[in-house]
Deep mutational scan, measured.
Amino acid sequence: MISLIAALAVDRVIGMENAMPWNLPADLAWFKRNTLNKPVIMGRHTWESIGRPLPGRKNIILSSQPGTDDRVTWVKSVDEAIAACGDVPEIMVIGGGRVYEQFLPKAQKLYLTHIDAEVEGDTHFPDYEPDDWESVFSEFHDADAQNSHSYCFEILERR
């Protein structure tokens, strides 16, 4: 099963200049909980913004210009990325925008964090048809001392 995991502000903004323009430790914990011990696929820009392999996960970098870091697996196509994951129950696609666009048609599940923030962004989550998805989990949280904005975790499964 292919799943996408993303944090989205208003207007589906997911990033600005290779960074997330908010401070939500709870979302980072949600991300870790849902990706640990699963292969993660990301684009080169996302890889560069993280700066290191995510521990406890097979890191697969999709790029037309593969790098030389041998701590991760470099691939040039969506099919190659899927094959590099091996026989696993769930593959997690973690961004960025172009990689989400490439995998959305193949995805069966979306793990979304909806952030109540209007922020400037240069990267967006692809538009998706809500009628194609069923919400199977939703959990709202107010902003607090650690988390700069209110947010809602949601899991959607393709109908």
Results as ranks from 00 to 15, higher is better:
Arg44Trp: 03
Phe153Arg: 03
Arg158Phe: 05
Ile115Thr: 06
Leu28Glu: 00
Gly43Val: 05
Leu54Gln: 01
Asp127Ala: 13
Gly86Val: 08
Val136Cys: 11
Ile115Ser: 04
Gln65Trp: 15
Arg52Gly: 15
Val78Ile: 07
Tyr128Ser: 05
Asp116Met: 15
Ala84Asp: 05
Met16Tyr: 01
Lys58Gln: 11
Tyr100Ile: 01
Asn37Gln: 12
Asp122Leu: 00
Glu90Ala: 03
Leu4Val: 05
Ser135Gly: 11
Phe153Ser: 03
Ser150His: 06
Ala6Leu: 04
Asn34Gly: 10
Ala84Tyr: 06
Asn147Ser: 06
Thr73Glu: 12
Cys85Ser: 08
Glu157Gly: 08
Leu24Ile: 15
Glu101Ala: 09
Pro105Ile: 08
Gln102Tyr: 12
Val119Cys: 15
Lys32Phe: 03
Arg44Gly: 13
Lys38Gln: 02
Met92Ser: 05
Met92Tyr: 11
Asn37Glu: 14
Val13Leu: 05
Val75Met: 11
Arg57Ser: 01
Ile115Ala: 04
Pro89Ile: 07
Pro53Met: 12
Ala145Thr: 07
Ser150Trp: 08
Asp127Phe: 14
Ala29His: 04
Cys85Asp: 01
Phe153Ala: 03
Glu129Cys: 11
His45Glu: 05
His45Leu: 05
Thr35Ala: 00
Asp69Ser: 13
Asn34Met: 06
Asp116Lys: 15
Val88Asp: 11
Asp79Tyr: 10
Ala143Val: 08
Asp142Met: 10
Lys32Arg: 05
Ala83Leu: 10
Ala6Phe: 14
Gly121Met: 00
Val72Pro: 09
Val119Gly: 03
Ala19Tyr: 15
Glu17Val: 01
Glu48Gln: 15
Glu118Tyr: 07
Gly97Ala: 09
Val136Tyr: 06
Thr46Gly: 02
Ser49Asn: 03
Phe103Gly: 00
His45Arg: 05
Arg98Trp: 14
Tyr128Glu: 03
Met20Gly: 01
Val72Ile: 13
Gly67Thr: 15
Arg71Thr: 13
Tyr100Trp: 09
Glu120Gly: 12
Phe140Met: 13
Asn34Phe: 06
Pro25Asp: 07
Ile91Gln: 04
Ala26His: 11
Pro66His: 06
Val40Leu: 15
Gly51Val: 11
Lys38Gly: 05
Val40Gln: 05
Asp70Cys: 14
Phe137Lys: 09
Asn37His: 08
Val119Lys: 05
Arg33Val: 11
Gly56Asn: 10
Leu156Arg: 12
Thr35Leu: 00
His149Ile: 02
Asn59Glu: 06
Glu90Cys: 06
Gln108Met: 09
Lys76Pro: 10
Ser138His: 05
Ile50Cys: 10
Ser135Ala: 03
Arg57Gly: 01
Cys152Gln: 09
Gln146Asn: 08
Val72Phe: 15
Asp132Leu: 11
Gly86Asp: 06
Tyr151Met: 08
Ala26Gln: 04
Asp127His: 15
Gln108Lys: 09
Ser135Asp: 05
Asp79Pro: 13
Asp131Ala: 04
Pro55Arg: 12
Pro66Ile: 13
Lys38Phe: 07
Gly86Ala: 09
Gly67Leu: 13
Ser148Ile: 00
Pro105Glu: 09
Gly97Phe: 03
Ser135His: 08
Gln146Arg: 05
Leu28Pro: 00
Arg71Asn: 12
Ser3Lys: 02
Val93Leu: 02
Gly51Arg: 12
Val78Thr: 13
Pro66Thr: 11
Ser63Pro: 02
Gly51Thr: 14
Asp69Lys: 06
Glu101Pro: 02
Gln102Phe: 14
Glu118Val: 09
Pro21Ser: 09
His124Ser: 11
Ala117Thr: 05
Ala26Trp: 02
Ile61Ala: 02
Pro25Ile: 14
Val72Thr: 10
Ser64Trp: 09
Glu157Arg: 10
Leu36Trp: 07
Thr123Lys: 09
Pro130Thr: 12
Ala83Ile: 12
Glu80Leu: 09
Glu90Ser: 03
Pro39Val: 14
Ile5Val: 00
Arg52Asn: 14
Pro130Met: 11
Pro66Arg: 14
Ser135Ile: 15
Asn34Gln: 15
Tyr111Val: 10
Leu24Trp: 02
Ser64Thr: 12
Glu157Ser: 10
Ala9Phe: 03
Asp79Leu: 07
Ala145Gly: 08
Met20Ala: 00
Ala143Thr: 06
Cys152Ser: 14
Gly15Ala: 01
His141Ile: 07
His149Trp: 00
Val99Cys: 13
Ala9Cys: 11
Glu139Pro: 00
Phe153Asn: 04
His114Met: 13
Trp47Phe: 15
Arg98Gln: 03
Ala29Trp: 06
Ser63Val: 08
Trp133Asn: 04
Ala145Ile: 07
Ile60Trp: 02
Asn37Ala: 06
Ser49Arg: 00
Ser77Gly: 10
Asp116Trp: 13
Ser148Glu: 00
Ile5Ser: 00
Lys106Ala: 09
Ile155Ala: 03
Ile155Tyr: 03
Val13Met: 05
Gln146Tyr: 07
Asp87Ala: 11
Glu134Met: 10
Cys85Ala: 10
His141Ala: 05
Tyr151Gln: 13
Arg52Gln: 15
Val13Trp: 04
Tyr151Leu: 08
Asp122Lys: 00
Tyr100Asn: 00
Tyr111Pro: 01
Glu120Lys: 12
Pro25Gln: 03
Gly56His: 12
Asp142Cys: 08
Ile14Leu: 15
Tyr111Phe: 07
Met42Thr: 01
Ser77Asn: 15
Ile41Phe: 01
Asp116Leu: 14
Tyr128Trp: 14
Arg98Asn: 08
Ile61Gly: 01
Gln108Tyr: 10
Ala143Cys: 07
Asp70Asn: 12
Val78Phe: 13
Gly56Phe: 09
Ser64His: 08
Pro55Val: 12
Ile41Glu: 04
Trp22Thr: 01
Asp132Val: 13
Thr73His: 13
Ser77Lys: 14
His114Phe: 13
Arg71Tyr: 07
Arg159Ser: 10
Val78His: 11
Thr73Cys: 14
Gln108Ile: 06
Lys32Met: 04
Val75His: 10
Val88His: 12
Ser148Tyr: 01
Pro105Ser: 07
Asp131Arg: 06
Ile155Arg: 04
Leu8Gly: 01
Glu154His: 13
Asp79Ile: 13
Trp47Gln: 11
Ser135Phe: 08
Ala117Cys: 06
Ser3His: 02
Thr123Gly: 01
Asp142Gln: 10
Asn59Trp: 05
Met92His: 02
Ala29Met: 03
Gly86Phe: 05
Asp87Leu: 09
Ile14Ser: 01
Arg158Gly: 04
Ile82Thr: 07
Asp79Arg: 11
Asp70Met: 13
Lys58Cys: 10
Lys109Thr: 07
Asp132Gln: 10
Ile14Gln: 00
Thr68Phe: 14
Gly67Arg: 06
Ile60Tyr: 15
Ala19Cys: 14
Ser3Asn: 09
Thr73Ala: 11
His114Asn: 14
Ser150Met: 04
Glu80Phe: 08
Ser64Glu: 14
Asp142Trp: 10
Ala143Asn: 07
Lys106Ile: 15
Glu48Leu: 15
Leu54Cys: 03
Arg57Thr: 00
Ser64Asn: 14
Ile60Thr: 04
Lys109Val: 08
His124Leu: 07
Arg158Asn: 05
Ala83Phe: 10
Pro53Arg: 13
Glu120Arg: 14
His114Lys: 14
Asn147Cys: 05
Ser3Phe: 01
Arg71Trp: 09
Thr35Ser: 04
Val78Arg: 14
Ser135Val: 09
Ala29Pro: 00
Phe153Tyr: 06
Ser49Gly: 07
Gln108Gly: 08
Trp133Leu: 03
Ser3Glu: 03
Tyr100Leu: 03
Lys76His: 11
Ala117Met: 07
Ser64Ala: 15
Val10Gly: 06
Tyr100Ala: 03
Arg158Tyr: 05
Val72Lys: 01
Pro53Val: 10
Ile155Trp: 02
Ser49Lys: 00
Asp70Pro: 15
Asp11Phe: 02
Asn18Met: 10
Lys38Leu: 08
Pro39Asn: 10
Met16Thr: 04
Glu134Cys: 11
Leu8Gln: 04
Pro126Cys: 13
Ala117Glu: 07
His124Tyr: 03
Glu17Gln: 02
Val72Cys: 14
Pro66Phe: 15
Thr73Gln: 15
Trp74Leu: 06
Gly51Asn: 11
Glu154Met: 15
Pro25Glu: 06
Asn37Cys: 05
Glu139Asn: 07
Arg33Leu: 11
Pro89Tyr: 11
Ser148Gln: 00
Arg71Gly: 13
Leu4Phe: 15
Arg98Ile: 02
Leu28Arg: 00
Trp47Lys: 08
Ile60Met: 09
Glu134Pro: 08
Val75Trp: 03
Arg12Gln: 15
Ile61Cys: 11
Gly97Trp: 00
Gln65Tyr: 13
Phe103Ser: 03
Val93Thr: 04
Gln102Arg: 07
Trp74Phe: 07
Pro126Met: 08
Cys152Asn: 11
Ile5Asn: 00
Thr123Asp: 00
Ala84Val: 09
Lys76Phe: 14
Asn147Glu: 05
Gly86Leu: 07
Pro21Arg: 03
Trp30Met: 15
Asp116Ile: 15
Gly51Pro: 12
Gln146Cys: 12
Leu4Glu: 02
Trp47Ile: 12
Glu48Thr: 12
Gly97His: 03
Asp142His: 12
Tyr151Thr: 10
Arg44Glu: 04
Pro39Phe: 08
Phe31Met: 05
